[in-house]
């Protein structure tokens, strides 16, 4: 139990640090909402830490090896969807508090939750080799969620014209983020 809590705290801290440092990097493109969503790499990593293909195996292995004290690392670190969601919410909350922009909080929250839903749904249909695609889809949905929130806040539907550019940028940055998570998971499982 405490091992899971430690793991979650570490992942939240890493995501938070990535988020804060990333907010200090100026992007030369003048479109609001363009950002490298690097913190999403942590979310993807946590989400795919135990993929669906391994889940049944690992639960059996945990039951079998409970009487023994020695277990492999990958067998203990299992994060449920709710755990990953908690990490996401904490990162968004603390991130917008520390960066000092509460206006960004609502946008980040709506984008993050929508992206999280999309990634969770996609996780069940995808093997471990396609995490980059899940990341790209997540980034696209993040941008969609942010634009929806911006439209609701300002009441001008014209903001939706940003969507095509943001979708392209989302696919590119999301693929990079997902690739990072995918490679990290591959290295860890060795």
């Amino acid at each position: 139990m405490t091992k899971k809590l430690t793991l979650m705290s570490i992942l939240t801290a890493v995501a938070l640090i990535i988020f804060i440092i990333e907010s200090l990097i100026p992007i030369p493109i003048p479109i609001p909402g363009i950002k490298l969503g690097l913190a999403n790499a942590v979310t993807l990593f946590a989400l795919f830490l135990v993929s669906q293909n391994n889940q049944a195996e690992q639960k059996n292995q945990i039951k079998q090896t409970l009487p023994l004290k020695q277990t492999k690392i990958t067998q203990i670190y299992y994060l449920s969807t709710f755990n990953v969601f908690a990490i996401l919410i904490c990162r968004i909350l603390l991130g917008s508090l520390f960066t000092g922009r509460m206006t960004a909080f609502i946008l980040s929250l709506s984008g993050g939750i929508l992206a999280f839903l999309a990634q969770v749904l996609l996780k069940r249909l995808v093997t471990n080799k396609q995490i980059w695609a899940v990341g790209a889809v997540g980034a696209v949905f993040h941008n969609i969620g942010q634009i929806l929130a911006a439209i609701i806040i300002t009441g001008t539907p014209a903001i939706v014209t940003y969507l095509p550019i943001l979708i392209i940028a989302g696919i590119i940055t999301g693929s990079i983020t997902g690739l990072i998570a995918q490679i990290t998971l591959q290295r860890i499982k060795q």
Binding site: P32, T103, L107, A150, I153, T154, T156, A158, I159, T161
Partner: peptide, 10 residues
């Protein structure tokens, strides 16, 4: 459109 979100300006 040019949008200033904190100032609600469009």
């Amino acid at each position: 459109p040019i949008v200033c979100l904190p100032h609600r300006l469009v």
